[in-house]
Design a protein around this nucleic acid. Structure first.
Length: 433
RNA sequence: GCGGUAGUGGUGAAGUGGUUAACACACUGGUUUGUGGAUCCAGCAUGCGAGGGUUCGAUCCCCUUCUACCGCCCCA
């Protein structure tokens, strides 16, 4: 009878050291770049009261209606694992009164971490996934919208990604959207029977969603539908124009997609997505998305404060980097590998290994009493630059055998002088490369 | 939540209702009683996702379940 084994929960992943190395690289790039744009990192809880998400995302959004990873805790509180980052950040913004006069405006923060959505895993989609996101509060300036878009583009370029499309659209303000919504319904109603069954339901619940249906019969109808851009109020239209002008100024290329609708209900005015046409991510082409929202801070009890934000899907980003051959190379280089032969060499090899580490070098040794050959194989495999061999004969002479793995040359060096000699040895080896 | 495909060792995989589950890579040991990317030799799945059932007998047939992958919905 085999022992009971365990599997990780559906839709989750173990991220092993070699991968974590890649993660840390792209996280580091984000940290330094976002810092340059004046964003500070914020860390909010991974779970919140269910209401925090329900209220922000909107009652008709799928995130709330069927994808929430929620549970009741031991105090009968209805909690939920965060499905996205914005709600928690807005909650923290209000709770910590970051709208206060002592804080610089706009108030800019970024975050990175796991998000949870209870859904069926598939390409680029997991139950636990990760986002790198940013939010800025307290300014209505279209320049801020543009800065957010530019920052994402800057970031992705820094990582070496190519062939990305920036799609933008405007959802207008509440008034614009209400008018458009009615116009859209008026247009779609006569075509009701031609729509896919999904879209027939959408028409009832959230007509804007019909716009990004993938069903061919829907797309044909949608193509003739009125555009929201024709329903923008004067202030929204002005904002929309300014965003385009500023993007042009920055030479950020973009496409206007008037049928783009984002999944969360809180957006208004500018929304954007960064998409790839890479086939490996065909079902999950959006690697980053965001937009402007107002009303959210108010909803959480703060003063009326506009916000803009975006989130990047880390798993999608990573798989796109892999597809484009841009994953940062994993460095496994080790400075020293200490080969020890025989019981009498154990103490000395431990001492030497530690000595080298104290000096700031990466040093590894064998713990399995393996043959010298096997130990050299390990040294070779992990890319050790030098091998130090310690056995009975070396101990007798008070020396250590030092071998340069690249040149194959080996010479003895006094155990006492090792610490002093190592820096020049390392330097000489680096110059020889 | 719905639909499709799949699940054999550390990895990639072949395979059949019936005594020893190919092959390759990796790994370990040996050839060299203490020296690395080569050659050669040897070892390496009492088990074929899990649990039931059919059968004299199942990894191969049936059911259930879990997981992965792909698609819908939706989204990062």
């Amino acid at each position: 009878m085999a022992k009971k084994t365990f599997q990780r929960p559906k839709g989750t992943a173990d991220i092993l050291p070699d991968q974590v190395y890649q993660w840390q690289k792209i996280e580091a790039v984000a940290r330094t770049l976002f810092d340059r744009y004046g964003f500070g990192e914020i860390r909010t809880p991974i779970f919140e009261n269910f209401e925090v998400f329900a209220r922000s995302a909107g009652d008709t959004s799928d995130v709330v209606t069927k994808e929430m990873y929620d549970f009741d805790d031991k105090g009968d509180r209805h909690m939920a694992l965060r499905p996205e980052g914005t709600a928690g950040v807005v909650r923290a913004y209000c709770e910590n009164k970051l709208y206060g006069p002592e804080h610089e405006k706009p108030y800019k923060v970024f975050y990175m971490g796991p998000m949870f959505r209870y859904e069926r895993p598939q390409a680029g989609r997991f139950r636990q996934f990760h986002q790198i996101g940013a939010e800025a509060f307290g300014s209505n300036s279209p320049a801020l919208d543009v800065e957010m878009i530019a920052m994402v583009v800057d970031y992705l370029k820094n990582l070496g990604l190519k062939n990305l499309t920036v799609a933008i659209n405007s959802l207008g303000d509440a008034q614009s959207r209400a008018q458009y919504r009615q116009a859209l319904i008026d247009y779609l109603k006569p075509h009701f029977d031609e729509l896919s069954s999904d879209s027939q339901i959408r028409l009832e619940k959230n007509p804007l969603r019909v716009l990004d249906s993938k069903a061919p019969q829907d797309q044909a109808i949608v193509a003739q539908a009125p555009s929201i851009l024709d329903f923008l109020s004067s202030s929204s239209a002005e904002h929309w124009q300014a965003v385009q002008i500023l993007l042009d100024q920055l030479n950020v290329s973009y496409e206007i997609d008037s049928s783009m609708v984002r999944g969360l209900d809180y957006y208004n005015d500018t929304i954007f997505e960064i998409m790839t046409n890479d086939e490996s991510l065909s079902g999950a082409a959006t690697i980053a998305g965001g937009g402007r929202y107002s009303g959210l801070v108010e909803e959480f009890g703060g003063p009326a404060t506009p916000g803009v934000g975006f989130a990047i899907g880390v798993e999608r980003l990573l798989s796109l980097l892999a597809a484009q051959g841009q994953l940062p190379a994993c460095q496994t280089d080790v400075d020293f590998y200490i080969v020890n032969i025989g019981d009498e060499a154990q103490v000395a090899s431990l001492a030497v290994t530690q000595q080298l580490r104290y000096l700031g070098y990466k040093a590894q040794r064998d713990y399995l009493d393996r043959s010298a050959k096997a130990q050299f194989k390990s040294a070779n495999r992990i890319g050790a630059r030098f091998v130090i061999t310690i056995g009975a004969s070396e101990l007798e002479k008070g020396v250590v055998a030092l071998k340069n793995m690249a040149s194959g040359q080996q010479h003895e060096i006094s155990l006492n002088e090792l610490a002093e000699a190592v820096p020049t040895i390392m330097q000489a080896a680096s110059q020889g490369e």
